[in-house]
Design a binder for these strands. Sequence first.
DNA 1: CATCAGGGCCCTG
DNA 2: CAGGGCCCTGAT
Length: 323
Amino acid sequence: MKSLVLKDKKNFFVFPSSPFHFDGTFHKPSHYPDKLTDWGVGKYWQTIRIGKRLFGLKIENKGETQKPKIKVSVFYDKDVSEKELETIKEEIIWRFDLKADLKKFNKLAKSDKRFYPIFKKWLGMRNSSAHNLYELLIIAVLLQNATVRRTVQMTDALLNNYGMKLKFDGKDIFAIWLPEKLNNVSEQNLRGLKIGYRAKFIKRLSQDFTEDKIDELKLRTLDQENAKKELMKLYGVGPETARILLFEICHQYNTFDHIAPWQQKIYSQLFYKKSLVPVNKIRDDIKKQYGDYSMLAVHYIWEDIFWKRKHEKIDWLEKEIRL
DNA sequence: CATCAGGGCCCTG
DNA sequence: CAGGGCCCTGAT
């Protein structure tokens, strides 16, 4: 695997909309562990592609909930142009939804007697994606029909063969390859990395992205229905993968439509303290209560339980998370 | 040891 | 629109 050392850096500040929750936004404990990001309280690292160039990012909390401010350090080799810095800034603002207006949502949360303590704790948290559409698509495909351990294995195998390791700020953070990199890699070679039938999906998706068949910037401007339609055209994207992409890439807050069996078990415990509630009931209840913010509301409650899991053993949850 | 389902999706009938 | 098949892995 190749690596790149980034020695120089430039920095700028971003002022997210208020209120803002830094750690809730930049770290999602429900996600499977990967080498693509790193996090500590008030600090966060990732890589980012701008065009064909790679940069390292360190993002630090320099503000407060009601007075948000973050510092972004951009690590580079050779140089970084003003235009690239501006693009990076805009990308960060989009990917982490830093300018979101959550007034209505926060008002809704306040009237929710049952879960208000959770909403209050994470006040200002955003749904976010560290990655661009292609990158998150790859991750989503690796999640399909696999347990966490297997997903981690597949991700590592792919990164070790086609990814790039960036060394900056004393960290080793990985970047996902460009789609075109897989064009002259055979499906058989990919299968050699034990990713199974997903090799076919990844080949075809990479081909489509190489040929610019998908316009991520345009996708961001579409309404939910049309964005979903576009995403479902992609090979290997069904209802669950579309939901992930709509929520994390497009910041569509009301995407609580598809519920997978393993999620159903966790929702049943979270919302009803029962082992299994019918998915239609779960969906109807949530939609009725949270309306246009169905998925965002669930996201707060979902991440909260995974934060707890970091330092507290939750027996029923351990059973449902298949490692 | 064999069998099976899994953090879905595609394809066929 | 229902159901079989798919890669591989760990659980039973």
